[in-house]
Design a protein around this nucleic acid. Structure first.
Length: 351
DNA sequence: AAACCGGGGGC
DNA sequence: GCCCCAGGTTT
């Protein structure tokens, strides 16, 4: 029986893609592509990658660019935190590594946005150093082949997967192997309807032998989502609503939102925050918003602000937003919904 | 609608 | 070191 990596490499020589734009011994290009591929499929990434590399042909060009220009080039790929990390890391490479992408594992994994797997991918692909990788595709291949039980989010499970990854990683042709094992997971050992008959390691795939492919990798045991509650104030003065910018970190980071009331009541809030009396308080029906980890019940309360208190707001972090104007920035979906309701005047009142 | 995704960060 | 988070896409 051939070694695992030999079979994967032979399969790759026959079936793998070897002419992708980032498949060159250029660490910078490999890095950019790996970050893009963390979140997006190959076909989508290619045009973004080409444009990105034209705008920022090397790591110093990226470091010297304005973050806005980088985000603009990233626009459409989503997960903008990764573009911010890419830009920050480029600055570190320029300032701390003399503009040359580092080639030691410790230096690479220390860069923002690069963890163990991405560092392994870059170093094996660009520098032919023997490092294992463990992205979602590889996790699936290894969990099935070795019947590694449990959900890969659990540290005990991911530890076993890393051990298998290290064990299978060859010393020769390690860059080709990295590409090969990712391709295998992406095109053959797929989440649903895997092509086991075409798989180079089907002969000793434990899950296949037990006819239990669909059991691996293990799923997260889903638990009831917690329910949280908040009150959002729609402070209305003439045709404007008071908005606040949320802190950069956390939910809806940096987006504009309505002020939230954790305790106390809306009339006091109006007096304390806006130095204004109110001429009416009107609760609306609760609005439920679902996140991946919890549900949020929003209790909207409209507060009619008596007189004008415009001088209180209108800074970087708060503003009176005239509801017919274009918004001051990004607005979280449920907040937008409430603003639309306010604009059209229709709503269901609470009893 | 639910599963999935690598790294960051809080504890 | 463990667990959860954000903010998306794929199924």
């Amino acid at each position: 029986m051939n070694d695992f990596s030999d079979r994967v490499l032979s399969w790759f020589d026959e079936n793998g893609r070897k002419d992708l734009p980032w498949q060159k011994p250029d660490a910078y290009g490999v890095w950019v592509s790996e970050i893009m591929l963390q979140q997006t499929q190959v076909q989508t990434v290619i045009p973004y990658y080409e444009r990105f590399m034209q705008s920022f042909p090397d790591v110093v060009a990226l470091a010297d660019a304005d973050l806005d220009a980088v985000l603009h080039r990233w626009s459409g790929l989503g997960y903008y935190a990764r573009a911010r990390n890419l830009h920050a890391a480029a600055g570190i490479v320029r300032d701390k590594h003399g503009g040359a992408f580092p080639s030691s594992f410790e230096d690479v994994v220390a860069l923002p946005g690069i963890g163990r797997s991405t560092a392994g991918a870059i170093l094996s692909l660009a520098f032919s150093q023997r490092h294992a990788i463990l992205d979602g595709n590889v996790k699936r291949v290894l969990a099935r082949h070795g019947v590694i039980e449990g959900w890969p989010g659990k540290s005990a499970v991911v530890k076993q997967l890393w051990q298998a990854a290290e064990r299978h990683t060859p010393s020769k042709r390690v860059g080709a192997y990295t590409q090969a094992i990712m391709d295998l997971g992406a095109t053959v050992c797929t989440r649903s309807n895997p092509g086991c008959s075409a798989c180079p390691v089907n002969a000793d795939c434990q899950a296949l032998q037990h006819d239990a492919i669909e059991r691996y990798p293990g799923r997260k045991t889903k638990q009831a989502k917690p329910l949280r509650q908040t009150t959002m104030v729609l402070a209305v003065s003439n045709d404007a609503v008071y908005l606040e910018r949320r802190p950069a970190a956390g939910i809806w980071g940096g987006l504009w939102s309505l002020p939230e009331l954790t305790d106390g009541e809306a009339g006091d809030w109006c007096w304390q925050t806006l130095n204004s009396r109110n001429s009416g308080i009107e609760p609306w029906a609760t609005l439920r918003h679902s996140f991946s980890h919890f549900d949020l019940d929003i209790q909207p309360v409209v507060v009619r602000v008596a007189g004008t208190s415009r001088k209180v707001a209108d800074g970087d972090d708060s503003t009176w937003y005239r509801i017919d104007d274009s918004p001051p920035g990004g607005i979280a979906a449920p907040v937008q919904k409430l603003l639309n309701t306010l604009k059209t005047g229709g709503h269901v009142q609470n009893s």
